[in-house]
Structure formats: structure tokens, C-alpha cells
Nucleic acid binder design. Structure first.
Lengths: 110, 110
DNA sequence: ACGCCATACCTCGCCTGTCAAGGTATCTCA
DNA sequence: TGAGATACCTTGACAGGCGAGGTATGGCGT
């Protein structure tokens, strides 16, 4: 884990929305996926994850429903809403812009 | 101003260090430079700037001294220390890493 | 049979960085 | 004379991240 929270801060919700763009899933799974994709260089802490879910649901960007697991722990699945998709697209654009601005601001030449 | 604070959060100190890598300067000037470089798409708020200066000085990454202005408002100049240069280099690396991780985490394909 | 681990969810309260608001002082120029 | 730019600073609130703690289910080894 080398990436500190503040570098990722502000991306938590976008990361969740991105996962949900691929299809419905649940908290624990997203957690594992993030760890896998980042080669364990980053991790969404559970408390962070669940508070983000709450915010996203409160603002109508995702919806949740209980999975019908016949066995094992119950899972709360999340589904992205049209509003969520819209936000996701905007966030991707903002990220592209932020990247180029930060690159300019922290380089030493030019 | 299209970039929200949370996307830049965590980069404030690196931005300041980057400016100081180019030579001693002072708060107001950094503020203007950031606005200019980003084409006014981003701005370091004064309160944010000064609290960052405080942190950087407290941790020995920068040093300050009063400029000898014969006229006009006095300026507190900042100088980057060897420790600050070291931190700067590390932050640049972290940023490169964070960029690639975030890119992977928020894209929809793959 | 029993404990441990993985799965899976959740809450409380602290910490930290951002920033709106407000304040001070100096100089220029109309 | 007074507005605006330059230049500094503090206070207090807010929001997001997260450590710590908690609940429940089921599989696996001994």
C-alpha cells in the first residue's frame, strides 16, 4: 500500500460507479476488485466504502437490493442509475482535466 | 474554476514544493502562478495555501524569511530544504503511480 | 464438536485538509 | 480621497477517510 488516501480522495465515488458500470455488484466484491486491479497498491477501506455507498444512494446515483443467496452471508447489491451514469461520465472528464492540470503544476520545467 | 478541490486534494504541498524548486518565492506569487499555469481552472485558496506553508515549515521541508522590500507590502519568502526536495521527488513518483492506478480503477473496459 | 477463518454487512467518532469569512497593512493611481 | 491591487494572517466549520469495534453465516481442519 503505497498510495495515500489524499491522492485518491475524491475518486472513491467514481471508482465505485466505474465498477457498477460493468454490472451490479456488492461491497465486499468491489473491495476485492479494487485490490486486485491495483495489485494491492490501493485499497478501499470498508468504512470509506460504506459511507460512499450511503452518499451515492442518498443522491440517487445508485440503488440497492438484497441478493437472494441461498447460503452464506447475505449481500447487498448495488445498481447504477441513469443519474449515476451521467455523473460517472462527468467525473471521467474532470479526471482527465485534473490530470493535465496537476501534471503542469507539479513539474519543474516549463 | 472547473476542478473541484477533492480531485486536487493531497497535491497542494507538492504544488508548492514544485514552485519552490524553481527558486524562492512567496505566497501571493505562488497563488498567481498556479492560476496562470492552470488557465484559471484551478486556484489555491489563501487559507489552504497558508496552512500548507505552516505544515511544510513545521516538518522542515521549507524555510521562510522576510524579503527586504523597500516599498510595498512585505513578503515572506520561502525556500525549499534538502528534505523538501527529497519529498518532492517522492511525491512525483507517487503521483505517477496514483495516476496509473486511478486510470485503471475508473475505466470501464478491461 | 469446536474454534478459526473467510465472507459480508454495518456504525461511531476522530483526524486532517480545505476554505469561507474576516482581519491587517502598504502603495498606486485616478 | 478612496478604490483596488498587493501581501500577509487567523478562526471555525465542514466533509471525507478510516481505525476500531460490532453482527451474522458457513466451510474447513483437527
Amino acid at each position: 500500500m503505497s498510495i495515500t488516501a489524499d491522492l485518491i480522495r475524491g475518486h472513491t465515488e467514481t471508482i465505485i460507479l466505474a465498477q457498477l458500470m460493468r454490472g451490479d455488484t456488492y461491497g465486499y466484491e468491489i473491495n476485492k476488485t479494487v485490490r486486485r486491479i491495483s495489485d494491492s497498491r490501493y485499497e478501499l477501506k470498508e468504512a470509506t466504502l460504506y459511507s460512499a455507498f450511503r452518499r451515492l444512494e442518498d443522491t440517487g446515483q445508485i440503488e440497492s437490493y438484497w441478493g437472494g443467496e441461498a447460503t452464506g452471508a447475505r449481500r447487498r447489491y448495488y445498481r447504477i442509475t441513469p443519474l449515476g451514469r451521467q455523473t460517472y461520465a462527468q467525473q471521467i472528464e474532470l479526471w482527465e482535466e485534473a490530470k493535465s492540470i496537476i501534471d503542469k503544476l507539479i513539474e519543474t520545467e516549463a
